[in-house]
Design a protein around this nucleic acid. Structure first.
Lengths: 156, 156
DNA sequence: ATTGAATTGTTTAATATTAAACTATATGGG
DNA sequence: CCCATATAGTTTAATATTAAACAATTCAAT
């Protein structure tokens, strides 16, 4: 990690922090993805199921915002999950443009079987840091991530 | 951000830190990618050019490890950059399995034109944190990312 | 020396993701 | 009411990425 760019201390500090952040996230994801794939779920599929499980039915736009993916991608994710009987689409009654995604019982069962071991792996990976370090990491990342509005399309 | 999963304090702490880390990285990348794409480079292409520029010629395997991408992906990245005349392939003399990637002068010029504004954007985004916070973030992320060997294939 | 295992790069097929154009619905100002 | 604009979802075409099978080369242990 780190960089060999011969910039100002300020640049080097920012770049080193950015590279460490990027690589930590990618590294953790690479390790977690493998076990998710063994469960037959892509990252987007798992994220969608997990969001619906813990937040209740959502329209596709909300899922798109939550996962930071484009709307078109969520259409495909919902298509595939619907084909497998893990969720169903319900046309909004008030706003007929919206389609709310509801987990089926099969979908809930999938989350119940996949989420606990996934969480256990996350906890195990995060144990490289102490409790207070985890809380500090969260605070720093939230400060970084929240500095700008991200409620619009993920990549407008 | 955060989670509504009703787990133990330990689980909630780890999950919140993980989610914040993931979203911060994705959020920063989404914003940076747009400007890279305006320069006509994908993330993998930019990462490859930048690595060759600052580290010197590398074989594809090294690039693969550095970018945390599969070898097959690096083949395609190198193909596309070679077609555009930004790098050239040089068969290794000592180990004839290897192919070292060398930047062309056009490739170096591309990095010189793209890297500085890219770095400026990173610095601007990271300024949401103070200097010491940036250093602390780097330390925490390195601890997380280095806890396990990642010198093998990115997704073996 | 020889053979078997490991490593590097390549190819192929499948999936994921995006941007952009499109349809349908909602909303707000004349 | 009517139209302009915005929003939700869909479709399409292109690119990115992966896993897996493969060829060529190296290396190590006999």
């Amino acid at each position: 990690m780190g960089t060999r760019y011969p910039g100002s201390p300020k640049e080097v500090r920012a770049l080193n922090a950015f590279i460490a952040l990027s690589r930590a996230a990618e590294s953790l994801h690479a390790r977690l993805n493998r076990s998710l794939e063994e469960a037959g779920l892509s990252v987007g599929q798992f994220g969608t199921l997990e969001a619906l499980y813990h937040l209740g039915p959502l329209c596709q736009r909300d899922v798109s915002r939550k996962l930071l993916r484009t709307g078109g991608n969520v259409v495909m994710i919902a298509d595939n999950l619907e084909k497998r009987g893990l969720l169903r689409r319900v046309r909004g009654e008030k706003d007929r443009r919206q389609i709310r995604l509801h987990l089926t019982e099969k979908g809930r069962a999938k989350v119940r079987s996949v989420f606990p071991p996934h969480l256990a792996r996350i906890v195990a990976l995060m144990e490289a840091l102490s409790s207070s370090e985890q809380e500090e990491l969260r605070r720093l990342c939230r400060t970084l991530g929240l500095q700008q509005d991200r409620t619009k399309e993920a990549h407008p």
